[in-house]
Design a protein around this nucleic acid. Structure first.
Length: 577
RNA sequence: GGUCCGGUGGUGUAGCGGUUAACAUGCCUCCCUGUCACGGAGGAGAUCGCGGGUUCGAUUCCCGUCCGGACCGCCA
């Protein structure tokens, strides 16, 4: 089957040529003895014209039929500036109907009115919409630019196993039963973390992989069960050197894919600063509305909740003092959803107003006004709680308000690094420490000795890349000293035998000359989502799962044949609550 | 596991304690030689997610359930 051009190619310069085109019938406009057809392929649309003598040929042709047509390129009488080929059209001489099509359950156009449910069920048709096709293509381009750069700087692409060993920390594993070894299971990788570190021990020095990862957790618009990480690891580079490579890679992606100029190096915020100013470890700094600390103002006040709180933080929302009771209740509900006990609301009218003011003396009120630099018509939201909680709640309010009050340019891109994460997190519930990043992340060199005395305060050589409030990826320098790695496992509460059973192979490897190394993993789906201005990563994944972990198209997951279970020595006993 | 929102022709929505269930689009037939979201005339197409309850009467109100979505928990 031959075509001479794609449907985006023909211009006024080709007038007079005889061409052959292939494509789907996108739209048919019938004038009796004169018929127009918009012929669509993956590149674009070309208008076909069938005059009186040819109209008969396509009498039965409907939308989404596939045609191969030959004809002469002619200049249009009335041009269409909205499409690339709008200056010309094809005077069709011959037509072959390559295939017919039923009426589609959704309209194949950029502005479909179909709900996501319908789009997912007929995903192949959803993807046929040019807007979707282009998103998937953009993803391809992003991957290509990344691959080219990583190759250029000497990273070797290496595949690591999909069937691997269950890891105890982190997300739930997907398990795959072994037929050959009854009762035993492979796990699908949550990330190739251990393997890429082993590759450094092997001496590959620089590695990357466009790696499929699997986590059996609930989904979100930016989370899928199986997702793709661009997984990168370097030997002998420090954290800034690694970050610099990533900055350059992203700079090229933005330039080559979107023709968007990024300034490097990116802004770096410490975890503490990010939390203090934005109430998030993945801040969107395209707008202000920063958090402010007012703890000290209230340390002797009459208001018990403020006086005794570890932290009192505030955000000042300009010109929103007129917000209705209903809107404020919604903000309070949001604060409570994020775990706040209460949201304190003040309004700056002619004077400061708010029900809690009765607890404050004149001095304290003055102090609030001056330190927050309050102007008339400001709305002030305050939360008193533990530091992290207060930051987190106001951070949630901040991003909510940023979005609803449209405080930022949606088309802008703001990259930044969040660095110096705490190494550990203490879980009151379990009475033990968990690794904030993962158990192989190295503590800051100068803080290693604090591991014995005050592990909580130790920071990690860990860094997250953040774009517009989304965590694009995280990385760290790894521990390469076997004693330090052992100590980490001890702090995390693993016994000697647990270490051996779970990471034995990994710890063993450390004995044989482990280079200093570190790396990062970038969520490709999120990169593609943000660069295509999509609301969900589902838009940039060809065949995604829906919010309840199902594939509405092929209906996975599904029951299997009893004989399949027999072979796996598995009996099913579903526990119902 | 939880909270909130939704489920009405193929698609997307409106509606309401009693309707011939409305509108747009798509589909079918007819008319049309310059459209490009063509236009015009006509037509087919819905047991209002499912089960139960309240009621003389339920698509509408209530309860349950299933399905979809957003978020919280969870996601080192």
């Amino acid at each position: 089957m031959e075509r001479t051009h794609h449907n985006n190619q023909l211009t006024i310069n080709e007038v007079g040529q005889t061409v052959t085109l292939i494509g789907w019938v996108s739209k048919r406009r019938n004038f009796g003895s004169l018929v127009f057809i918009d012929l669509r392929d993956r590149e674009g649309i070309t208008q076909l014209v069938f005059d009186e003598t040819k109209a008969e040929l396509i009498k039965n042709v409907r939308n989404e039929y596939i045609l191969q047509v030959s004809g002469k390129v002619v200049e249009r009488k009335s041009k269409n500036p909205n499409i690339k080929t709008g200056e010309i059209e094809i005077n069709v001489e011959s037509v072959e109907v390559i295939n017919e099509a039923n009426t589609t359950p959704l309209i194949i156009a950029d502005e479909t009115d179909a709900l996501e449910e319908t789009r997912m069920k007929y995903r192949y048709l959803d993807l046929r919409r040019p807007v979707m096709l282009n998103k998937i293509r953009t993803r391809h381009q992003i991957t290509q630019v990344m691959r080219r750069y990583l190759d250029e700087i000497g990273c070797i692409e290496i595949e690591t196993p999909i069937l691997t060993k269950s890891t105890p920390e982190g997300a739930r594993d997907f398990l795959v039963p072994s037929r050959v070894h009854p009762g035993e299971f492979y796990a699908l990788p949550q990330s190739p973390q251990l393997f890429k570190q082993l590759l450094m021990i092997s001496g590959f020095e620089r590695y990357y992989q466009v790696a499929r990862c699997f986590r059996d957790e609930d989904l979100r618009s930016d989370r899928q069960l199986d997702f793709t990480q661009v997984d990168i690891e370097f030997s002998f580079l420090n954290d800034v050197e690694i970050q610099t490579h990533i900055e350059e890679m992203m700079r090229r992606v933005m330039k080559e894919v979107l023709n968007y100029d990024l300034v490097t190096p990116f802004l770096r915020l410490t975890y503490k600063e990010a939390m203090n100013r934005y109430g998030s470890d993945k801040p969107d700094n395209r707008f202000g509305l920063e958090l402010q600390d007012v703890t000290t103002i209230f340390e002797n006040c009459e208001f018990e909740a403020f006086r005794s709180a570890e932290t009192v933080k505030a955000i000042v929302v300009e010109n929103q003092a007129s917000m209705t009771r209903k809107e404020i209740d919604a903000l309070t509900a949001l604060a409570k959803k994020h775990g706040a006990k209460a949201l304190t609301v003040l309004k700056m009218k002619e004077t400061l107003e708010g029900s809690v003011l009765k607890f404050f003396n004149e001095e304290e009120i003055k102090h609030v006004i001056s330190s927050l630099n309050l102007q008339e018509n400001d709305l002030i939201l305050m939360v008193a709680d533990k530091w992290e909680k207060a930051c987190d709640v106001l951070g949630a309010l901040r991003s909510h308000l940023g979005k609803t009050l449209k405080l930022y340019d949606e088309k802008a891109f703001s990259y930044l690094w969040v660095v110096d994460f705490p190494l550990l997190e203490y879980s009151e519930e379990d009475g033990r420490y968990y690794a904030k990043h993962h158990p192989f992340t190295s503590p800051k060199k100068e803080e290693i000795e604090l591991l014995d005395t005050n592990p909580k305060t130790v920071n990690a050589n860990a860094y997250d890349l953040v774009l517009n409030g989304y965590e694009l990826g995280g990385g760290s320098l790894r521990i390469y000293n076997q004693n330090l790695q052992k100590k980490m496992f001890e702090i995390l509460g693993f016994s000697e035998s647990e270490i051996q059973e779970r990471f034995g192979f990994f710890v063993d490897a450390f004995q044989y000359g482990t280079p200093p190394h570190g790396g990062i993993a970038l969520g490709l789906d999120r990169v593609a989502m943000l660069l295509t201005h999509s609301d969900s990563i589902r838009d940039v994944i060809a065949f995604p799962k829906n919010a309840s972990s199902k594939d509405p198209m092929c209906e996975a997951p599904s029951p299997v044949e009893p004989s399949q279970l027999d072979e796996l020595n598995i009996a099913i006993d579903i526990k119902k609550n």
